[in-house]
């Protein structure tokens, strides 16, 4: 499904990034980094409008030729970014939402591990496992 999954700290440095074809890693780092401005913009502009549901899911941040970049922000200002291939037409908004939900739940459990210090790079085995699942299922689609 996803080709890149990333978690960004509230201070805007990466806590976690996983990409599928590893030779593209740097490119994805760049993609994730550039989309943070879009996240900031969405968060601040949306909160000014009146009929705003203030959802955690921010939707499509921007499409590039090959990829679609989606964003999500928690109440604790941690950002999740998921990148999927534009050619993957099977993934609709609902699927993306549910991926973010799972990611958020896994992040929350990970943060609750007493051996984790908030702000540290994420090294949790179970978090890794969930992210890999999100990426592996791409093979089947």
């Amino acid at each position: 499904m996803a080709v890149c999954v990333s978690v960004i700290a509230k201070e805007n440095y990466p806590l976690y990034i996983k990409t599928i074809p590893t030779e593209n890693e740097l490119k994805f780092h760049y993609t994730v980094h550039t989309c943070l401005d879009v996240v900031e913009e969405k968060v601040s502009s949306v909160s000014k409008s009146v009929n705003d549901l203030r959802e955690l899911y921010l939707g499509l941040l921007y499409p590039t030729e090959d990829y679609k970049v989606y964003g999500y922000v928690t109440n604790t200002k941690v950002k999740f970014v998921i990148v999927v291939e534009t050619s993957n037409t099977l993934l609709r908004d609902n699927e993306i939402r549910s991926m973010f939900r799972k990611l958020h739940n896994a992040y929350t459990d990970m943060l609750c591990n007493p051996f984790y210090t908030p702000g540290e790079t994420i090294k949790s085995r179970s978090f890794d496992k969930l992210v890999l699942q999100m990426m592996v299922s791409e093979v089947q689609s």
Binding site: S47, L53, L56, T74, N75, T76, N105, T108, C112
Partner: peptide, 19 residues
């Protein structure tokens, strides 16, 4: 402090963003 950090992450998981 550490417990508060974790608890609030859990408690705000399903609420809309704060104004």
């Amino acid at each position: 402090y550490r417990v508060g950090q974790s608890l609030v992450e859990r408690f705000t998981k399903d609420s809309p963003r704060f104004k």
